[in-house]
């Protein structure tokens, strides 16, 4: 237990970044997590918090093309970065093919884990156009879903990959 009082002010740091193609600049406490930054500063509430410890992946976003868990990334670490969140997937109101595949394959129930899974799938298909079952399982090993038992998520990702190849 700390015996001394907390400092009354914590110096804020400027963060400039691009999310879903739009640039933002905010002054934030250095301890602010990236997921808090997205949700509280930018009101992009599609990215969720499930475990706080990098296990569940509900907070997964793409940072400079690589998926990261935004609950264990500080906002200041994303200074200068380009991010993609679930809100940036649809284009002109049209669902992204990955989103469409998740809907078609009933790959979600409560939908809380879905934003993170969509981003992990996006990352997978960017690097592997023909994933096999093992690739798919590995790609979403860091995304916990409590509703679906993963079966329809496997189907959704396979469907998204197949549709992409067919397109």
């Amino acid at each position: 237990m700390p015996e001394t009082a907390m400092p009354e002010t914590i110096e804020k740091i400027s963060v400039t970044l691009k999310v879903n193609g739009k640039e933002y600049q905010r002054l934030v406490e250095p301890r602010m997590l990236l997921v808090e930054f997205l949700r509280e500063e930018l009101d992009l509430t599609g990215t969720h918090v499930g475990c706080d410890t990098t296990y569940c992946g509900a907070c997964t976003v793409l940072m400079n093309g690589a998926s990261v868990k935004s609950c264990t990334t500080f906002a200041v670490q994303a200074d200068g970065a380009e991010l993609l969140t679930v809100e940036g997937l649809a284009h002109n109101g049209e669902l992204h093919p990955i989103q469409k595949a998740f809907g078609d394959a009933y790959g979600l129930q409560c939908g809380y884990c879905t934003p993170g899974l969509l981003i992990s799938t996006y990352q997978l298909l960017e690097h592997n156009t023909s994933p096999n079952e093992k690739d798919i399982r590995k790609a979403i090993a860091g995304n916990t879903c409590r509703c679906t038992g993963y079966q329809n998520i496997f189907k959704a990702i396979q469907l998204a990959a197949d549709n992409r190849k067919g397109a």
């Binding site: 992009l44 509430t45 599609g46 990215t47 969140t85 679930v86 809100e87 997937l89 649809a90 669902l95 989103q99 469409k100 998740f102 809907g103 979600l108 939908g111 809380y112 879905t114 934003p115 969509l118």
Partner: peptide
């Protein structure tokens, strides 16, 4: 799905 897939739940 229309809202949940878009992160608009």
């Amino acid at each position: 799905e229309s809202r949940l897939l878009r992160g608009l739940g």
